[in-house]
């Protein structure tokens, strides 16, 4: 579904990604973790071409991002993305947030889009808030709407960029619950997150990044199972976040 092939990226002289390669198969859930500044968010943003890269290629559902002829907006419409800061559109109601791209990008009719949006809103448990504006919802509720908004486009894969890092602790679980449910339904997912509980529960593979490189890329059982087989850097990282 996603094939990342020897991707390099620089900001000027500074190298953010260095020779990153990995695959995400259909139905697979891959968690990307690593210290801040390790390039994990940049990597996931490269997957739907929100960030350009200079070398290598990423192929999503058979479409090459490095190919200059690729219609990037069209590709992005099939790749769902959830952001750290939700990024709901504050000037639009929740219903409009859920329907605007369906109508303007996919060309769906207003009624069809609204029906689809409301069904997804119900699924994330927020149907009663359809008429409200994003500013009237809590962080956790906004993030659930953001997930519903991405799902409304019928994506072939979902990308999550630290979806719970900006949330109050008590709201983390309501968002993770939605993500777990999605994973169990067979959605292909690539998640940048530090929620190791989530990784243990639903991830098929865990990728560990440091200084722009993919240091570890292995099955969940191996990643959490045998620490001695992990790299020094991954062990230090895990020790820090798993201690408490």
């Amino acid at each position: 579904m996603i094939s990342i092939q020897n991707v390099y990226k620089w900001y000027g002289d500074f190298q953010v990604l260095s020779n990153c390669s990995t695959e995400v198969s259909k139905g697979e859930v891959v968690v990307v973790c690593g210290p801040s500044g390790s390039g994990k968010s940049t990597l996931i943003k490269c997957v739907n071409a929100l960030e350009p890269f200079q070398r290598g290629d990423i192929v999503v559902d058979g479409i090459s991002l490095a190919d200059p002829k690729t219609n990037l907006p069209k590709l992005r419409s099939r790749v769902g993305m959830v952001f750290q800061h939700f990024e709901l559109f504050p000037h639009l109601s929740i219903t409009e947030n859920l329907t605007i791209a369906q109508i303007k990008v996919l060309g769906r009719g207003k009624d069809e889009a609204t029906e689809k949006g409301l069904a997804l809103l119900e699924r994330v448990g927020l149907k009663a808030h359809a008429h409200k504006y994003p500013g009237q919802l809590s962080g956790g509720q906004q993030q659930r709407v953001a997930i519903a908004r991405a799902l409304a486009m019928d994506p072939v894969v979902m990308l999550f960029d630290e979806p719970t890092s900006a949330l109050d602790p008590e709201m983390v679980n309501e968002v993770l619950d939605v993500m777990v449910q999605l994973a169990q339904e067979g959605m292909t997912m690539m998640c940048v997150t530090h929620e190791m509980g989530f990784a243990r529960k639903v991830a098929d593979r865990v990728i560990f990044m440091d200084q722009g490189q993919i240091v570890e890329d292995c099955a969940k059982e191996a990643f959490f199972g045998d620490l001695s087989a992990r790299s020094e850097r991954a062990r230090q990282f895990l020790a820090k976040i798993l201690q408490h």
Partner: peptide, 9 residues
Amino acid sequence: GAAQALGMT
């Protein structure tokens, strides 16, 4: 970014 990610031009 969010608007682009939804496929808008």
